[in-house]
Structure formats: structure tokens, C-alpha cells
Design a protein around this nucleic acid. Structure first.
Lengths: 233, 233
DNA sequence: CTCCCTCAGATTGGATCCAACCGTAACAGG
DNA sequence: CCTGTTACGGTTGGATCCAATCTGAGGGAG
């Protein structure tokens, strides 16, 4: 049940129904979920560990807000991890999985054509994660998943910039091509380029960060993510 | 208070006072910590997210046990992340920090000479993390920290293999040298080699994994780390 | 003798209750 | 009029209580 609440809350955040910076009141969530506050508290500690929520003791939780610097950080990390993931996955992808990826790719382009940013964001995510299906590394997948989640708000914003779809789509095609050729080296390279280019594109559009308002009151002093582990021994 | 319990429990695990596979009873921990079970439950969800503990619903928590495959996974990830970290850190390290690193390096070698594996493990960790002090990326640091924690049990075992200290020490010296020359490229390269060689060394000593006994009863079916996020939207 | 079923003990997970703490607003004093 | 203080309301965090579930032992049937 704690898991249910966690997943539902996470979805609310990822889909933007809860805005970054917005206060999350335990009681309100509990009422909406039809539970007591206990599972909500569990969910909040989980989401805090995932970096989707910031909690200050005796004050409360807010939807995490990523600064430009943190966004770059996440993308730098992804630039390292996802090429690894795809190169390990490439040799093990089945023909069926490749076919699915091909279809997914068309769905993405369709979503772009009918100008459905929300669907595009979802499908794009799904495409990339599916390219890692040939790899059995739960920890790595978890990390990548978490990184995607953390930047979700900006991916949604990015999807509303019409101009860049073309480039992303051709990069996707290149990735799929490398996968079909079972070429881990190229796949890895293109993956890295794809992520880096996205990062640079986001940097160019720093107006996306103009919305650094407080969203729902309160001075931002952050206290965000996991605490310092292992102080001194 | 939940944080206190989390940190203390984490330390118990990292120092091996709680053996991998060992059952963790909420009530027992609560008694030892002098609290109720509530903060313990919070600590367990946190540690589960960090991968130090595995929890099965309505059954309980156990200290996480890393298989050989997962160990390799962690080291592959570290091979990607730590070179990034050190290359970002190198340009910003102060002379004072470099001096500290030099001293730390001597302490490590001292610990090896007097054959104090426990101290060696601690100092080695501290050395590497301090090489990242020039970098301001909390998320990356957190991930690296977590990866080190996850493999702590094997690092302790590794430190009891006398033969490999020499190589590790010379690699450390090479890293320090690159840092002193403010050469991110070399630092990054050596870091990667260092991690990869350690991984291969651990692989050679697969006898360390013979201890795949159940430690404290119970069939292992795992359910270990963070759940699958974001099923389908 | 073995296997399956049932039941009791133990342990976890959720709900409720209470204390500690923070932020705000009213108020008093300068 | 402004500022510092204080008290109140609201929210979080911890303790306690209760229900739900799993494990293991014991007994009965084949």
C-alpha cells in the first residue's frame, strides 16, 4: 500500500499535476489516496531519496525544483551511463524487440506530427528505456530511470519547443540503425551525442528557467536530496 | 531522529557488524536505538532505496547480499561515473586539498604496512572521495557514495588479499600526480583503469563469493532494490 | 512414512493518538 | 509608524494500538 501511494504520488509529480515547488501536505495526500498519513510518509521518504521531493524537518515536503546547474549535472551523468547501458544491451536485443523499437519510433514521429507533446515525452522515454531491454542490470536501469524522472519537468518543456524534433528523430533513427547492425560501439556513441546535444539545446533555452518563482510561497533554501552518508568513521 | 537511526543502521551494515543476509528485526533495532519502530521503518525504506537492505512485504528486512553479477554491475557504473567526477574536480582542487590528499596517501600506505585492513578500507575510500572535492555535484557524489557503500563488504574482503596493495598504491600515486599537474584527462583515464583493474581482481577471487550461504536462514528469492517505477502511463 | 492441511506465534504494516516544532498574526513597546 | 515579542493554529514526527500476513510446528490422512 505504501508502494501504491508512492507510485501514484510519483505519477502526479511526473505528469506535472503537482508543480515544482508546490507544497505537499501529508493529510491532503492521505485523504486523496484514502489512507492514513503513514503510507504517505513512507512515500515521501522514498521520493525524497529519488530526488523528486525536498523535505525540511518539521516544515514539510515540496515538489523538487531543479536548477540549471542540477539539470546539467543530470545530463552529464546520463551521458556516461546510457552509452554504457546501450552498448551492453545491443548484443542481446531480440528481433522482436527491435521490431517493437521500430514501431515505437514511428509512434514518436506521429506524436510530433499531430503536435501532442505529452505523448511525445512519454513515447520518447519509452523508446530509450526499451533500447536497454537487452541488458540485465537492475541497478543501472534504476539509476537511469531516476535521472529521467528528475528531469521530467524540463523534458515536458522541451517537447513544446517545436524546432528540435527533427534532430531528435534522426538521432533516434541512427540509434535504431546501430542496434539493428548489432554495433554496440556506434550505438554507444550516438547515444552519447544524443544526450549531449539535448543538454546543449536545453542550455540554449534558459528561458525555461525563468519560472524560478516560488510557485507556492516560501523562501527556497533547499535541503533537498539524500543526506550526507558516512560522515566520518 | 529518523535520520539518526538511518545513519547508525547504515554504519552497522557498512562496518560488517550486521552480516549480509542477516535478518533485521524492527523491534530489535528500535530497542537498541531507544526509539519506537517508526523511525526504524523509515530507516529501512531509506536503506532499501540505497540498496543496502532488501525488504519483502510482511516478511521483513535483511542486509543486502551482492552477487558476483551485481558487483560487476556496480564496478561498471563506477568506471563511468568516477572518471567524470575526477575530471570535473581536477581543475578546482586547491593546493591545500592536494596536500591533504598527499598525506592521506601516506596514511593508506602506512595502514597497509602495519596490516590494518579495516583502516585501509576507510582511508582508501576517503582518499578517492576527497579527489572529488573540487566538484560541486551533489547528485553525482551521492550516487558514487551509494555505489561504494553497496560494495563495502567486498572491499573489506579485498583488503585482506595482501598481494594487490602495491598496484593500488601506485595507481593512487599516478592519480595524485595527474591532479597535481591539473591534468583532468589523465586523471580520468587512471581513475577508470584503477576501477577496472579492481573489478578484474575481484573477479579472479571468486572464492570471496563462496560465502553465499544463507547466513541466517531463509530461502533467497530477493526482491531487493527499488521497485519498477513508472509502469506504463 | 510422507505429504498436506490447519492453527498458533511472531512480525510486519496501517490507523490513531499525542507531543514537538514552525510560521503567522496579533499585540505591545519604542 | 515600525519593530520585536509572544501566543496560537497548523503541520509534522514519534509512540502506541490493532489488523493483516507470513512462518513454522503439529497433527491427521493417504
Amino acid at each position: 500500500m505504501g508502494n501504491t501511494v508512492t507510485n501514484r504520488l510519483r505519477e502526479e509529480i511526473l505528469q506535472g499535476r503537482l508543480a515544482p515547488g508546490q507544497r505537499i501536505r501529508q493529510e491532503a495526500v492521505a485523504a486523496e489516496m484514502g489512507t492514513s498519513r503513514i503510507p504517505v510518509r513512507e512515500a515521501l521518504t522514498r521520493l525524497q531519496n529519488e530526488g523528486l521531493v525536498t523535505v525540511t524537518a518539521h516544515v514539510g515536503a515540496r515538489v523538487a525544483q531543479l536548477h540549471l546547474a542540477e539539470l546539467n549535472e543530470v545530463y552529464l551523468i546520463r551521458e556516461r551511463l546510457e552509452p554504457l547501458a546501450i552498448s551492453l544491451s545491443t548484443p542481446n536485443l531480440t528481433d522482436k524487440q527491435l521490431a517493437t523499437l521500430g514501431r515505437r519510433l514511428e509512434e514518436i514521429e506521429d506524436a510530433a506530427n499531430v503536435d501532442d507533446p505529452s505523448a511525445w515525452v512519454d513515447l520518447d522515454r519509452r523508446f530509450h528505456l526499451e533500447t536497454y531491454d537487452g541488458m540485465e542490470m537492475p541497478r543501472l536501469l534504476d539509476m537511469i530511470d531516476g535521472l529521467w524522472n528528475a528531469t521530467q519537468q524540463y523534458r515536458r518543456a522541451y517537447a513544446r519547443l517545436p524546432e528540435r524534433f527533427e534532430i531528435a528523430h534522426s538521432e533516434h533513427r541512427l540509434i535504431l540503425e546501430a542496434l539493428q547492425l548489432r554495433d554496440p560501439c556506434n550505438a554507444s556513441l550516438i547515444s552519447q551525442l544524443h544526450i549531449r546535444r539535448t543538454r546543449l539545446t536545453l542550455d540554449e533555452h534558459s528561458e525555461l528557467f525563468a519560472g524560478d518563482d516560488d510557485s507556492n510561497g516560501g523562501g527556497r533554501k533547499s535541503s533537498g536530496r539524500r543526506s550526507s552518508r558516512r560522515n566520518g568513521s
